[in-house]
Computed example of a mutant assay.
Amino acid sequence: MFRFILRRLASGVVLVVAISVVAFTLLYAGGGDIARRILGQNATQEIVDRKATELGLDRPLFDQYGDWLIHAIQGDFGRSWFTGQLVSVSVSSRLAVTLSIVIGAILVTAIVATVLGTVAAVKGGWVDRVVQVGSVIGFAIPGFLVALGLVLVFAIELGWFKATGYIPLTTSVTGWLSAVTLPIIALSLGAMATVAQQVRGSVSDALSRDYVRTLRSRGLGMTRVVGKHVLRNAGGPALAVLAVQFVGLLGGAVIVEKVFNIPGLGQLAVQATSASDIPSVMGLVIVTAVIVVVVNLLIDLTQAALNPKVRFA
């Protein structure tokens, strides 16, 4: 098990480094253009060249990346070119906001999708058809339309939740729940549809296996067979899809945070990208990559616990 974890960690580190190389190359390749974007089109070429020298953009790209990597390993991603704030501070201050929404959405997705997919596979008939149609509808409706609809109905019309803004959990538990409930629902519906379909397929396949008929012939109830044996064997594929959906939820958070005016990583990403604040963009890219690697590691460990054969893959 220890060697399995080491292999996964090593592949994760390689992935983060590869992402940093690609992102750095794409963002920093045009040094003169970067300085021009910062200063504006009215700046003279002399001032632009001076700014590029000040930022180190006139140095070879390999040297720039080497300096950035050394500082990044120490947790220093530089300062924003526009606010002067440390990138590590601006990212960390918003990380908890986004994670509270994304983790909440992935938990809701996992629970609801598992229940719906399992019920559809076990019951079949009209229940199965209803779940499948609902999954298609949930997958087809864009997330921002769901978010807008939730705001109009549950925040503006009924007044049950906050329409915009964010209240930290440490400030008020009820206020935090009021702020994150609608974003979590809006973010999880599309993922829920995909995972429910995967769970349904995996459970249906597991139910057709010989060991299920053997257990049933020994007098075990369907609920016990499904809960103790079927879900354990069907969990691997569903967890893999759930890991993919987590990455999608991180991307979807950009739109949801914009709709609900939540100060998370998504809002920071929009601001940094539109302003060509490359140090902030690089910080966001690396933090997101690390989160994805950690989530995939946790999923791999869970799959290894469910199926020991995974440890030798």
Rank of each mutant, 00 (worst) to 15 (best):
V102F: 03
L26W: 07
Q303R: 15
E54R: 06
T194I: 14
A196M: 10
V259E: 04
V89D: 15
R36V: 05
K228N: 07
G125Y: 04
V180Q: 07
S188H: 04
I156H: 09
Q41K: 04
R7V: 06
I278Q: 14
V173H: 02
Q41D: 06
R224P: 00
V108C: 10
Q303K: 13
R216K: 11
W160F: 12
I278S: 12
G201F: 04
M192C: 09
A43V: 02
I137P: 01
Y211D: 10
L55G: 11
R213P: 00
L250H: 13
A72D: 12
L152A: 09
V226R: 14
V295I: 15
G283H: 14
S92H: 07
A269D: 05
A10E: 00
A253M: 00
S11G: 01
N307Y: 01
L239C: 02
R36N: 02
Q245I: 07
I5G: 01
D63H: 08
E257W: 07
A253H: 05
A35M: 02
G78R: 15
L182C: 04
A272M: 07
I167R: 07
V290I: 15
G149E: 01
L284T: 14
T164H: 13
A193P: 00
T302E: 00
G283L: 11
Q74Y: 06
V127C: 09
G201V: 11
Q45L: 02
A191E: 04
V102I: 07
V91D: 04
D128A: 03
P279H: 15
T44S: 06
V21F: 15
V14L: 14
A304V: 03
V14T: 02
M192A: 08
